[in-house]
């Protein structure tokens, strides 16, 4: 496969007008390539533009310059790649049942959309139930979102992101708001879902162990304006286990990533130390 599934070329994103003082450069001439079926985790200091990349690929944002190509086409065109999206916040609609929430994409995405009325009680409901069962929510389809716990809602949210069998799955810190045990459980669920459907996945995360557990490749980003500093392939055999994520080779990887991000963060440090410098100056004056 010569052509990558996702191809970001020389992408710059600037918020606000280029000449105004308030404008911020979120991404600066970034390149990123993701092959079909890859599971790429994007890590980096906070505010470095990880979510911006995700939004670019999802077509929610257009670049100030450069090109974003997904599946051989410029993003934003009429021919759309099927994409699933999940956030930290599960955003279930409270007036629908969990099953109806999961089926929501089928109501909107072609070609499912035209059959929705006819199949919503049969085939589509079965599809949603099968997915719910796969993430351990058997029999929860008729419940309302408020009757589920945070972890369960996040599982349902993953189902909603996958029900239309997307070619591309975009995850923006989907496990960020969960406790550690639930989170690790959901890593397993996620790995399982990925191994059965094999979509291309882009995961934005702060959790390095999560990246090491799930990803086939990890991209480390620099502080704002973001660029990809380093890419690492993760070769651990699958299915991976939680025990593996505590094994020495994994700890080594996490430690290496941690150092790289700390380095990227230290680019910020002159700004944070500035006040103390001026304080020294003030002391001198006082003396």
């Amino acid at each position: 496969m010569n052509q990558p599934f996702i191809d970001l070329r020389d992408v710059t994103v600037r918020f606000g007008a280029a000449d105004s003082e308030t404008s911020t450069l979120a991404l600066d001439r970034t390149d990123l390539r993701i092959d079909t079926g890859d599971f790429v985790a994007l890590v980096g200091p906070s505010g470095c533009g990880k979510s911006t990349i995700l939004k670019l690929i999802g077509g929610l944002l257009s670049p100030s310059s450069g090109g974003v190509i997904v599946d051989g086409r410029e993003v934003g065109g009429p021919h759309r790649t099927r994409i699933g999206l999940a956030f930290q916040n599960p955003t279930m609609l409270p007036w629908l049942t969990v099953r109806e929430n999961v089926m929501m994409p089928l109501k909107i995405v072609e070609p499912f959309r035209q059959h929705y009325r006819a199949k919503k009680k049969g085939e589509y409901a079965e599809r949603a139930d099968a997915l719910l069962a796969q993430v351990g929510l058997t029999g929860m389809g008729d419940k309302r979102p408020w009757q589920l716990s945070g972890g369960m809602l996040q599982r349902a949210s993953l189902c909603r992101a996958l029900v239309h069998e997307p070619q591309l799955l975009l995850l923006d810190e989907p496990f960020g708001a969960l406790d550690q045990f639930t989170r690790e459980e959901l890593w397993g669920t996620m790995q399982n879902l990925w191994m059965t459907q094999r979509p291309t996945v882009l995961l934005v995360t702060h959790d390095l162990r999560e990246a090491a557990y799930l990803a086939t490749r990890i991209c480390v980003m620099s502080a704002r304006p973001g660029r990809i500093l380093e890419e690492r392939n993760v070769e651990f055999p699958r299915p991976r286990s939680i025990e593996m994520s505590y094994a020495p080779e994994c700890a080594e990887l996490v430690q290496a990533l941690r150092l790289r991000i700390a380095e990227a963060r230290s680019d910020l440090s002159p700004r944070t130390t500035e006040p103390s410098v001026s304080l020294v100056g003030a002391e001198k004056e006082a003396a």
């Binding site: 939004k55 999802g58 999206l85 999940a86 916040n89 955003t91 609609l93």
Partner: peptide, 17 residues
């Protein structure tokens, strides 16, 4: 919620949807 709008927009939802 803006997140929910994003989820739907990524699916190709129209404004009316």
């Amino acid at each position: 919620e803006p997140e929910l709008q994003d989820v739907l927009k990524v699916l190709g939802a129209r404004k009316l949807d």
